[in-house]
């Protein structure tokens, strides 16, 4: 299965990016082949709806799980429609988070904050 993680820089040793929609890159890691690629997040510079477009980019990579510290409601809707499960990352590096995920140690991410405009949607 492929998993995606928001990254601040193109390194597996860097920390997970705090913002999902505005992360400069996503690491897409294949748990079977153990290959990883960095995908540029072209949504990061958008003025609105960045989370939606970022989720679209990830869904188009054929990813099965998304590891992220937080996620907006709108992006979460895209992930749900795409059958992508969300897991909450910790303060450690991308590499360590992937290892924790493989061992089944990352909890599911279940609370979503409202988007930049979606103040009245769920998650509050």
């Amino acid at each position: 299965m492929k998993v995606a993680i928001p990254a601040d820089s193109k390194s597996m040793d860097s920390k997970v990016c705090a913002s999902f929609g505005r992360a400069p890159y996503f690491v897409v890691y294949d748990t079977e082949t153990k290959d990883s690629v960095f995908v540029e997040n072209t949504a990061a510079s958008g003025t609105g709806g960045a989370g939606i477009r970022a989720a679209q980019i990830i869904a188009d990579q054929g990813v099965g799980a998304m590891l992220t510290p937080r996620c907006g409601q709108n992006a979460a809707d895209v992930f749900r429609s795409a059958d992508i499960k969300l897991y909450r990352t910790n303060d450690h590096s991308i590499k360590e988070n992937i290892e924790a995920f493989v061992k089944g140690e990352l909890p599911l991410l279940e609370d979503f904050h409202a988007g930049f405009h979606g103040r009245n949607r769920g998650g509050l």
Binding site: G49, I52, R53, A55, Q56, S81, H117, R121
Partner: peptide
């Protein structure tokens, strides 16, 4: 086309985000 990113297409389905 949407400059506001109000639309997404996944799993053969178009999703529309009213609030954006």
């Amino acid at each position: 086309f949407c400059n506001y990113n109000a639309l997404a297409y996944v799993n053969q389905k178009l999703i529309i985000f009213d609030d954006v």
